[in-house]
Design a protein around this nucleic acid. Structure first.
Length: 588
RNA sequence: GGGCCGGUAGCUCAGCUGGUAGAGCAGGGGACUUUUAAUCCCAAGGUCGCAGGUUCGAGCCCUGCCCGGCCCA
């Protein structure tokens, strides 16, 4: 199949048509904002394309395929084997560390030719004439300067100078006039560089530069900065990913998050949102008199959840120790015994288990304990916290999560666990009964050794997915909850609740058991659960019982998954989209 | 752990029934003072994830493995 060279006149026609196509569309596009509104993109989850208009792209793509424009055969065809060999050499060089590769310029490369033009250079190897500055003080935010330029007349220029710094993300070179798009954390603005003022604009896509100039509007009405002085602050040495499509390969987005953040504004917005969320949580708790504390992440024993731990070894103690698999529950309650009254901890928790859209081996938990409060107070505090935080970071309580529109506004629905199970016809106090019910619905219960596990299984299968609107599921069977106080009316039920949004569990809380004697009895009950085959059973803790024996105020306590709330607020379906560096296998 | 899908140039993607790997963007050289995915000309760029196998011939078919995604457990 020989490739024919397209007739020259046909190619010229193509080129002319391309120009005609581009011109009117360009006018339309001038009105398209470069920035998405802060927060979530209108396109919804999963789409990481920049907010640009693909119309022209499509048109051009169509022309390309229909026109059948092909690369003409090379004049000096080197032959396949020679090219393969050349490729292999190039690959080897690419494989070397940048530091070794970059300085190896051919001698000519530094000099350039007699006319002063730089010689042929490899990627990012263009000579940098001076050592770049170590600081760039007194810069303004791009968003602020953009706002300043916005009200100007087309073609007008403001009187006062501004300083901006950021990364160059687009270049449109007219020869004596160069347009650059400069991006910082606050936004994007067009730079207008007249050669008369700035000299030759030796700037590549991806370079970090600092500029001084005056806010202005281009003739076409684009808010800009007319540059008087441009300084290169950092030269890019590796090529930027596709500036239109960004970096879309999910694996690459996680492995090289810096590129994801650089190219995808939505990613930047998501992680700034997470940071503001955590700050809003702290502000709320601090403002209500809580004390932030830290408790051990290295523990001689692990508990508080059913999970495999990461094990390590203390040389000093000559003893195996574990990274915690849950928040510092029993430590924090010791602090209540000690009189700190209101404490919280935001900390990393580790589970030696698999990765999924809602699991990462390390994640972040918040636990708080509040003396003189019960689980009703805690419910109120949690719904207030979530509402407050949502308003603070999103400006609204309405979110879209997993394709569902949800309002986080308080008060949340309260639903008794038993009622919820009965509603779905999966409730019985008798183990054999419950097992039969579940089996009759096709659920495999062979892994469930105890009644508690059957209840849990029924919950996850039938109740939780239905809890889309924010809901507190409350009043759990005592056997599921070794640290919660029983209700006044029924000794078999404890004052415990879990909060759900969009079918996802956000938190777990109780009126804390504060009686040493009863706590001891509960530990014995758990030992029976364990003997019955429930690996989730809580191991006893004599020291904790001793702490309680000094008397603990009645206390409401709660633990919740920070990452999960970040997912809800950012509208992300995968926990990996709210963790900057999610767990990845090393790519050998 | 099982099933399905994917891995081709730095990035985004084509690649037909097995027959010499090809586009756009980025990068190099050149033209251009109002562009905005600027445009135009020229040249360059490949370990087709890895290892085997089948075949005259494999990016494409087969086997195993690695990495990722989705679904299930």
């Amino acid at each position: 199949m020989a490739r024919a060279r397209a007739p020259a006149d046909a190619r010229r026609r193509d080129a002319a048509r391309a120009r005609d196509d581009a011109a009117p569309a360009g006018l339309d596009d001038a009105a398209v904002p470069r920035l998405r509104p802060g927060g979530r993109g209108a396109s919804g989850g999963g789409d990481h394309r920049p907010a640009l208009v693909p119309r022209r792209h499509r048109r051009r793509a169509r022309r390309e395929t229909a026109g059948g424009r092909r690369r003409p055969p090379r004049a000096g065809h080197r032959g396949l084997r020679a090219r393969r060999r050349a490729g292999r050499v190039a690959h080897k060089q690419r494989g070397q560390p940048l530091l070794l590769r970059a300085p190896r310029l051919p001698h000519r490369a530094r000099g350039g030719d007699a006319a002063g033009r730089p010689a042929r250079l490899g990627y990012g190897q263009a000579a940098v004439s001076t050592r770049p500055p170590k600081r760039y003080p007194d810069r303004d935010e791009i968003a602020a300067v953009r706002a300043e330029a916005e009200p100007l007349e087309d073609g007008a220029e403001a009187a006062e100078s501004r300083r901006l710094a950021g990364r160059v993300m687009a270049r449109r070179d007219m020869g004596k006039l160069v347009f650059l798009d400069l991006v910082d954390r606050s936004g994007r603005i067009q730079l207008l560089c007249p050669a008369a003022r700035t000299g030759e604009v030796d700037v590549h896509l991806g370079d970090v530069v600092g500029v001084t100039g005056k806010p202005a509007k281009s003739r076409r009405g684009e808010p800009s900065l007319v540059v008087d002085e441009l300084e290169l602050l950092s030269r890019i040495r590796s090529p930027l990913p596709d500036t239109f499509h960004g970096l879309t390969d999910v694996e690459q987005r996680y492995r090289r998050r810096y590129l994801d953040l650089m190219m995808n504004e939505e990613t930047r917005a998501d992680f700034i949102l997470r940071s503001r969320m955590v700050k809003a949580i702290r502000d709320y708790l601090d403002g209500d008199g809580f004390v932030e504390v830290e408790t051990p992440a290295l523990q001689a024993d692990y508990g508080g959840a059913f999970a495999r731990p990461f094990a390590t070894h203390s040389n000093e103690l000559d003893q195996d120790i574990y990274l915690r698999i849950a928040g510092g529950e029993l430590y924090l309650k010791r602090l209540i015994v000690g009189g700190l009254e209101k404490v919280y901890e935001i900390g990393r928790v580790f589970r030696n288990e698999g990765v999924s859209y809602k699991h990462n081996p390390e994640f972040t938990m918040l636990e708080w304990y509040e003396a003189y409060a019960d689980y009703n107070d805690t419910m109120e505090r949690f719904e207030t916290l979530v509402e407050t935080v949502a308003l603070e970071v999103l400006g609204t309580t309405k979110v879209t999560y997993r394709g569902q529109d949800i309002d986080l506004k308080r008060p949340w629905r309260r639903l008794k666990l038993v009622d919820a199970l009965e509603e779905h016809g999966v409730w019985s106090e008798d183990e054999a009964d419950l097992r039969a019910i579940l089996e009759s619905r096709g659920i495999n219960t062979t892994e469930d050794r105890t009644w508690s596990q059957l209840v849990d299984h029924a919950l996850t299968n039938y109740v939780e997915p239905k809890l889309v609107e924010p809901t507190f599921l409350h009043d759990y069977p005592v056997r599921l909850s070794p640290f919660a106080r029983t209700t006044d009316g029924d000794e078999q039920i404890v004052e415990r609740f879990e909060g759900f949004v969009g079918g996802t569990e956000l938190c777990n809380a109780f009126s804390e058991l504060n009686d040493a004697v009863e706590q001891e009895a509960r530990f014995r009950m758990q030992a029976e659960e364990g003997a019955g085959g429930n690996v989730e059973a809580e191991p006893g803790d004599e020291d904790y019982v001793e702490a309680l024996s000094y008397g603990m105020a009645p206390t409401g306590g709660l633990g919740f998954g920070i990452d999960r709330l970040a997912m809800v607020l950012a509208g992300k379906e995968s926990i990996r989209d709210v963790i900057l560096f999610p767990a990845q296998r090393p790519k050998s």
